[in-house]
Amino acid sequence: MSARLVTFTLDGHLYGVDVTAVQEVLRGQPQTRIPLAPDAVSGLINLRGQVMSAVELRVRLGLPDRREDQEPMLVVVRVAGETIALLVDTIGAVMDVDDEQFEPPPDTLAGPGREFLVGAYKLEDQLLLSLDVDRAAAA
């Protein structure tokens, strides 16, 4: 068994989501902020006439805020019938990974990461953290 993931980086770490959930990847778009919305929902984006919410993965995963001058990239995913844009630092590639490389998250992992990470794929030079896209995009 193997999986195919779309990879991206957040604060220097490599993350991946299942390729079947990803609709497209694009550059940052102007956002409309939503007062009273949950912290992780950073705004609304107009994608070719469709309005979708943008989820800031850095907030979601409890990572430090992105530098002001760094433009986020968008990974547009379809989850439970809704289209949602995930804000990430940079886009990586589509990567095939093998189940043998997989390991569940270490027991020492706590905090928001635990909730949204399925586990890690041990690549040769680094770890690819697999994101539970359903949970990360919802609520």
């Binding site: 102007p30 956002q31 919305a37 929902v41 984006i45 107009n46 309005v51 949602i84 919802a138």
Partner: peptide, 27 residues
Amino acid sequence: VKPLGTQLKAIGTYSGATILGDGRVAL
């Protein structure tokens, strides 16, 4: 009128969103 995602409907302050003349989204 464009519908909002579920997590935004729950806020209960917005009934939807729309796209304005300049392409930006407004609640």
